[in-house]
Structures are given as C-alpha cells and as structure tokens.
Design a protein around this nucleic acid. Structure first.
Lengths: 341, 341
DNA sequence: TTGAAAGCGCTACCAG
DNA sequence: CTGGTAGCGCTTTCAA
C-alpha cells in the first residue's frame, strides 16, 4: 500500500493513461455529453485505476453552479429543525445538491453570515433562522441567489417581499384549529403563550387563535411571551397561572407546550386535561412520548421540505419569480385536551 | 434600484475602478499580504461600491484548501446529534471553516457518499454516523484528507485504526459508573439495553457495566437490543420485563432510556425508582424534563467538539499523525434511581 | 510595495 | 465523436 500521495489525480493524468485527450475525460464525466462507448470505457478504467474524482470546485468555477445550497439555522434545541436538516439534506443530495450549514446566533449580525455564504457561490439559500434583515434578502437578490424562507415570512412589505420565496404552514388556520377545539371541549378562559414577538409564525398563530375565539363569542384571557425557549416558557407559564388562571393554554410550539406541562403538573399540581388544557404546535416526536401525549397542531415536515426543494429548483434552474407556498396543517389529538363529552 | 445583474463583480472590476492592478486587489483580501495603506483604502472603497466578495471556489482551486469540512451523520432523532451539529458548525465557523452536511442512511453504501464528499475537496471529514467501512478511512487517507470519527472508534485493527483520529467519551468508565450506582443503591437484577450490536459505544458501555457488576459480585441478568430506536427500544423493554423481570435497567443512550420509562410506567405500571431503576447515557436536554428526570451518564458535548476541532486542525494544518482523544463522562443524578438510604 | 504573467483543474467552444 | 484551445476568478511567483 502506497502511503505517499502528493496531489489527487487530475483529468489530464487520466487522459494520459487512457491515451485520449483531456476533453474526452471531461465528457465522460459530464452526463449527456457525446462520447463513444469505447472511449468511455478506456477513460473509466483509467480513472478507476488512479482513483480519479472530478474536482467539483474547478467545475463550479466555469459552470457557475456550485450545486451547494446554504442552510441557515439557529436554535436546534427545538426538535423540529433537526428533522428539517435531515430531510432537506437528503432530498437535495438526491438532486445532486449539497447543504452548507450556517448556524446563526439569534442576535447575530445577519450581514456577516451572508458575506460568508456568498463567497461560496451557493446556488441557493434556505433561511430557517429568526434572523434575516431586509438587507439580506435584498443582497441576495442583487447577486441573483434565490432565497427560500422556511417557516417564516418576511414581515416587511414591498422589496423583501418580492425578492424571496417562502414556505410556511397555514399558521393562521392552525391557530383557528386550536381555538375551535378548546371552545368545543368546554374550556372558557383562554391563554396564549407566544414565541417571539416579531416572528411571523407566532404572530399568525395568535391571530388565527384570537379570530376563532372571537367568532365563538370568546376572547383571549391572558397572554405571555416564552421566546421559544424552555426556561423562559416555564417562567411565562408561572406568570400566566398566577392570579386569575386560565383553563386553556395554546402554546406557539410544542417545545414550549411541553415546558408548560411540566410546570402545570409538577409545580402547580394541575390536572391536565381536567383542570387545564394544553395545545402545542409542530408535532415533534417528543409530543407523542408517553409522559406528555400532547394534543397539537401538526406541521408536516415532509411537504414543507418538498415545497422548499421545488421553490429552490424553480429559481435556480428556470429563474422563475419567487412565490409563497402555504402547507396545510392538521390537528393531532392526544391527551392534553379532554375528549368530547 | 437596479434589478438587472449579470455576473458578480470580479477582482478585475474592482481593480479597474480603484485604478490599481488586480494583484493589489487580491493582496488586500489576503491577510498578511503586503499592501500600502493608500492602495488598501482605494481597493476597499471600490470593493464596497461594487459589492465585491472574493470567490472562495477560485481561491480554493489555487490554494488547495477549500476550508470546508464534511460532517457525516445519520439519525438526528437522538437529540445528542443536533447539539453536535450546532456546536461544531459554530466552532468551525469561528476558525474560518464551514460545514458541508451529509446525511447517510444507516444502511447506505458508504463509498457513494464518500465519492461525493471528496469531489468537494473538503479539508477534513467528521464522521458521526454509524457507517464507515474500512474502505472509507483508507480512501481518505489515500488522498490525504484527515478523518475524525466522532463518538465511535473503528472496530477494525491495523490500517483503519491508524488512518483516522477519534473522539469518544470514556464509554467503558461510563458503564462502570452506572453499574456502581445501581449496586450501591441496592438493586440486584441488572439488565442492559444495547444500542446497535456493532457500535463501539454500545459495546464499550456494556463492557464497563459488566466489569463493574462483576467486581461487585454480580452479573448481568438480562440483555436486549434496542438499535438506538424508540420503538424498537420499547419492544425490547417489553421482552426484558416479561417473565423474570430485572429491577435495574441501564440503557445505551437516553433516547432509549426515555422510551423504556414510558413502557415501564404506563404499560407495566412499574414505579420508578422504587420497583425498578433506569439509567441512561448522554444527558440530552430531554433527560432533564420534568416528566422524566432521568438519571444518566453525561457525555459532555462541548469538550468533545473542542477535541474534534483540535484534531482536525492538527491534521489539516500541521499534518500530525492521527490520534484518539477520550473525554471523561460523569454521572447526573436525577430521579430514576432511588437515593442512598 | 507593485504589476505582469503563469497557471490551479476543469468545461465549452471550436474545427476537423 | 474527437482533440486543441481559451479562459472561469483567483493566488503566487517574479522583476521592476
């Protein structure tokens, strides 16, 4: 076994060994190029022998396509996002793309991350992080890099609105589902545990919740903000249930709903769902765990990821205009809301 | 606002505008290169105006360093791995590297993934997946790409052993910790819930567990395999507790320990920790959740990630020899093992 | 310190 | 179908 190795073999090395031109080697590794079967075999044999792999970077330099998609995320503690990483990576891999990960602190300057992303000549960007200033979308549009916002839409109008696509659940309808279920099951004092005040998901879920409540002749009794964080959500729940306590809680995501369940049961001694109901949003795997059995509004990861890949492809290949896709969500009933009758 | 844009500005465009040579532009963006302050300012001003960003791909072509590290993972459902992605990405970003994600199905052919990885001229590879044949480590060594195995060591001897580094917890010691705790607290019929039969983590944890049991004059009462999967772990627990049931269970990770708790409490009506003890491994965030309060052996993600970055750097920059780093783990006592006395 | 020139490994365009 | 040639955007000699 030869353990010395200076540089990886190049197309020219393969060409020399196979007694063909370097162009022939290139064609052999370019799907759809015209090479005779004989040449192709010679090249493949030589390539195999040398352990040749085309240099994707050199290829990208000339094709102007890196086949790299940037994925920008922040807090992975919410299990929803790892599922997204997993599925998105896999689906893009199948289409010959690869995912370059960027973790952005929630409060991090978006522009720094963006600069790094653009240096790598990515073909597209998926933003699943809470960041994204108007600058970001605009900068990307300016260099012609498609952006898909995942699970969030821009809160800006005009410019940013039209420079990037988005994939979201029907958060408004999801909020309505939660409200209607709680009303129907006889709860009367409704609380909302918000995520981040400026996140579109939390805002839309709350709007739908309030609208359906109001349609049924009810109103929001109390609300607090949990910042999509476990500890902060628990603190918010303590505030929510001090004094004039609600009997139904809709949390902006499962992560916070689970945090709430722990406080309600273990600190406040409340019985769920008899004394108080809890509804979450996402349907992460943990929501199904035996100790929680959380009733929740499901976001379907797979169609959302499919939509993301579709939007990316549209804009990377066909240069279609950005658009927004809304994926329906549905109710998963478990054990944190009392059954009918 | 000009919405037309053909190609991103190149160094030559900046040079033209700044009235300097293209070389000067390159030097301005190369840390440590010699440029006069006057030139530097002119270049930066022009670059700013044009929105110029150096093309990382072109740079990599010549420097032969892509500053990309491949991260190979499989099942992200175990919350331990998302934490690794998050921390590793962040730490590498701080050192100017970026993470290219590869999701490998457990049963996927390793060589296909590897080929894709190598095309991107990555500077290093972190393997946190269960895959990795002997071929993989060897292929990487052959092209001079450093490999760090995260949370697993090669089960092979010789060749593969010396062609890649590894970072692991002290799994053997962790298994001992679990056994000693259980023995000390008066449990007597010990069971082990294995992960995958051929995973080094599960094997080492079991070895340590058995060794400490045996030192204390006990032996393993029963064992089953849960394949690190929630449902399979639950099925295994049902088998484990049918017939001559154990009174203490050590699971190869928290994910399975939590699955076990659900079955024990809700299906079998067992009281934990009075009737039966459960100890996990990892200390994922969910282990601390109020409904579980799992006693577990903690793997410290941060030192493990730090060690990974160190090993990567050693081999990428200094071409040092591969080596193995073992990170100590410790016991986190919560509520699934009865207290002393 | 600076600019000119030579390529990094590859694809894409030629003419044959 | 094939081989030669130009050049993607950049870093890095080398002389000046």
């Amino acid at each position: 076994m030869d353990s010395r190795m200076k540089t990886a073999p190049r197309a020219q090395d393969v060409a020399d060994l196979a007694q063909v031109s370097q162009s022939a080697v290139s064609r052999t590794f370019t799907p759809g190029a015209s090479v005779s079967e004989a040449t192709r075999r010679k090249v493949l044999a030589a390539a195999q022998k040398l352990g040749y792999r085309p240099n994707a970077l050199a290829r990208s330099l000339i094709t102007r396509r890196s086949r790299i998609v940037a994925l920008v995320m922040s807090y992975l503690e919410n299990q929803f996002y790892p599922l997204v990483i997993e599925q998105l990576s896999q689906k893009l891999q199948k289409e010959g793309y690869h995912v370059l990960m960027f973790i952005a602190e929630v409060d991090e300057a978006a522009d720094g991350v963006l600069a790094e992303i653009l240096q790598y000549q990515v073909d597209g960007i998926v933003m699943a992080s809470a960041m994204l200033s108007s600058n970001v979308a605009r900068s990307c549009a300016a260099v012609g890099v498609p952006v898909v916002q995942f699970n969030r839409v821009s809160i800006l109008g005009g410019l940013a609105r039209h420079s990037s696509s988005s994939v979201t659940s029907d958060n408004y309808a999801g909020g309505q589902l939660a409200a209607r279920l709680l009303v129907e099951r006889g709860y009367r004092r409704f609380a909302y545990l918000a995520g981040l005040e400026d996140s579109s998901t939390s805002i839309e879920r709350e709007r739908g919740y309030r609208a359906a409540l109001s349609e049924a002749g009810h109103e929001l009794h109390r609300r607090e903000v949990g910042h999509y964080d476990f500890d902060q959500a628990q603190a918010a729940v303590r505030r929510l249930f001090s004094g004039d306590a609600p009997d139904a809680l809709f949390a902006a995501n499962d992560h916070m709903a689970i945090a709430a369940l722990d406080v309600l049961r273990q600190e406040l001694g409340a019985r769920v769902p008899q004394d108080v109901a809890v509804v979450g949003f996402d349907d992460v795997p943990q929501a199904a765990w035996g100790a929680y059995r959380l009733t929740t509004v499901r976001q379907r990861v797979e169609p959302m990821v499919d939509a993301t890949v579709t939007l990316l492809r549209e804009q990377m290949q066909a240069e279609l205009r950005p658009r927004d896709i809304v994926v329906p969500c549905d109710l998963v009933e478990r054990a944190t809301v009392r059954p009918a009758h």
